[in-house]
Structure formats: C-alpha cells, structure tokens
Amino acid sequence: MIWFGAILLLLVAISGFAVVCTRDVTSQVIALSFYGLLMALTFFFFQAPDVALSQITVGAVALPLMVMLAISRMKFRKAHMPDSSSGEEHD
C-alpha cells in the first residue's frame, strides 16, 4: 500500500515538472488540470477527503478555467484591436 503511495507521489513530481516545462500556454492549461486531478487522487489516498474535494473542484475546473478565460480575453483583444500592438503610451 505504501509503495503505491510512493509511486503516486513520484507521478505528481514528474507531472509537476512536465507542467512547468510545457512552453505552449494552451497545452499547459490542460497539463495543469491533469496535475490537479492527480493531486486530488493523492490527497484522497492519504486520507484527506476534505482537501481532495476542494482540489477536485478548484484544481480540475476552476483554476484552468481562470487561465483559459485570461488567454481567450487576450486573443479576443488581439483580434479586435489590430493596432494595439504598437503600444499606447499610458502613464
């Protein structure tokens, strides 16, 4: 049983590194969601159901959603303001 927990922890370590190493942001969001689900299973296995529940709700859906909303808003702005890349001198 403890060996399975150890393998789970190693999988978390590997996927955390893989999330950081992914350079394309859209792919990284999905990797982050996978990482959150894996963390949730780890919490569940090590007898922390409350933490696993908030990790399921936040890590699997809410946190990637925030990132995707930000990316899509940036894309939207780029599509609708072609001259904004010149840079408006504010402040």
Binding site: P49, D50, A52, L53, S54, T57, V58, V61, A62, L65
Partner: peptide, 25 residues
C-alpha cells in the same frame, strides 16, 4: 448538499461555492 452537510461529511462552504459557480457556467 455539499454545502449544507459540511459539519457531517467532507464538504463545506468553500467547495459548494465553486460547484454552484460552475453550475452557472
């Protein structure tokens, strides 16, 4: 259900809030 059974089973306000918000999403 998750929000109102926080004192009995795993759950509570924080998780219930995220679930309800995602329902409206």
């Amino acid at each position: 259900y998750i929000g109102l059974h926080g004192q009995l089973t795993p759950g509570g306000g924080f998780q219930a809030g995220v679930i309800l918000a995602s329902a409206l999403l």
